[in-house]
Deep mutational scan, measured.
Amino acid sequence: EETVVIALYDYQTNDPQELALRRNEEYCLLDSSEIHWWRVQDRNGHEGYVPSSYLVEKS
């Protein structure tokens, strides 16, 4: 079962390993094994790492 997370803030990045976030957008959580950086996928299928503190699990 996939976990959906919501971005609390915008996040901009130039790092190809990371993914930009848009506030209030939903993302699919792929990997939360790292404490500070979670791997997520956006609705267009793009994947990357984002700061975990910018996300909240959708209830």
Score class of each variant (00 low, 15 high):
1 E>M: 04
1 E>Y: 12
3 T>C: 04
3 T>Y: 09
3 T>F: 10
4 V>I: 14
5 V>E: 01
5 V>D: 02
5 V>G: 02
5 V>N: 02
6 I>P: 03
6 I>F: 05
7 A>Y: 01
8 L>R: 13
8 L>W: 03
8 L>M: 13
9 Y>L: 11
9 Y>E: 13
9 Y>A: 14
9 Y>S: 13
9 Y>R: 15
10 D>M: 01
10 D>R: 01
11 Y>I: 03
11 Y>C: 02
12 Q>H: 12
12 Q>P: 12
13 T>G: 13
13 T>M: 08
13 T>S: 11
14 N>Q: 15
15 D>I: 07
16 P>G: 08
17 Q>I: 05
17 Q>G: 12
18 E>S: 10
18 E>G: 12
18 E>R: 14
18 E>M: 12
19 L>E: 00
19 L>Y: 03
19 L>P: 03
19 L>I: 12
19 L>S: 02
19 L>D: 00
20 A>D: 12
20 A>P: 15
20 A>E: 13
21 L>I: 10
21 L>V: 12
21 L>C: 04
21 L>R: 00
21 L>A: 02
22 R>L: 12
22 R>I: 14
22 R>D: 11
22 R>N: 10
22 R>C: 10
23 R>M: 08
23 R>E: 10
24 N>M: 10
24 N>E: 08
24 N>C: 15
24 N>W: 05
24 N>G: 14
25 E>I: 03
25 E>N: 11
25 E>F: 06
26 E>Y: 03
26 E>K: 05
26 E>R: 06
26 E>T: 10
26 E>A: 06
27 Y>H: 01
28 C>D: 12
28 C>E: 10
28 C>W: 13
28 C>H: 15
28 C>Q: 08
28 C>Y: 13
29 L>N: 00
29 L>G: 00
30 L>T: 10
31 D>E: 10
31 D>M: 02
31 D>N: 11
32 S>N: 12
32 S>D: 15
32 S>P: 07
33 S>D: 08
33 S>K: 05
34 E>S: 13
35 I>A: 13
35 I>D: 14
35 I>S: 13
36 H>S: 08
36 H>N: 10
37 W>Y: 12
37 W>C: 10
38 W>G: 01
38 W>H: 08
38 W>D: 01
40 V>Q: 00
41 Q>S: 11
42 D>Y: 01
42 D>A: 10
43 R>Q: 11
44 N>A: 14
44 N>T: 14
44 N>I: 08
45 G>V: 01
45 G>D: 04
45 G>N: 05
45 G>E: 05
45 G>M: 05
45 G>Y: 04
45 G>P: 00
46 H>F: 07
46 H>A: 12
46 H>T: 11
47 E>W: 04
47 E>T: 07
47 E>P: 03
47 E>D: 05
48 G>K: 01
48 G>Q: 02
48 G>A: 04
48 G>N: 00
49 Y>D: 07
49 Y>S: 14
49 Y>R: 15
50 V>Q: 00
50 V>K: 00
50 V>H: 01
51 P>L: 03
51 P>C: 02
51 P>W: 02
52 S>P: 10
52 S>L: 01
52 S>W: 03
52 S>H: 04
53 S>D: 15
54 Y>M: 10
54 Y>E: 00
54 Y>P: 00
54 Y>L: 09
55 L>R: 02
55 L>D: 02
55 L>I: 11
56 V>A: 14
56 V>E: 12
57 E>P: 06
57 E>C: 08
57 E>K: 10
57 E>V: 09
57 E>A: 13
58 K>C: 04
58 K>G: 07
58 K>L: 07
59 S>R: 15
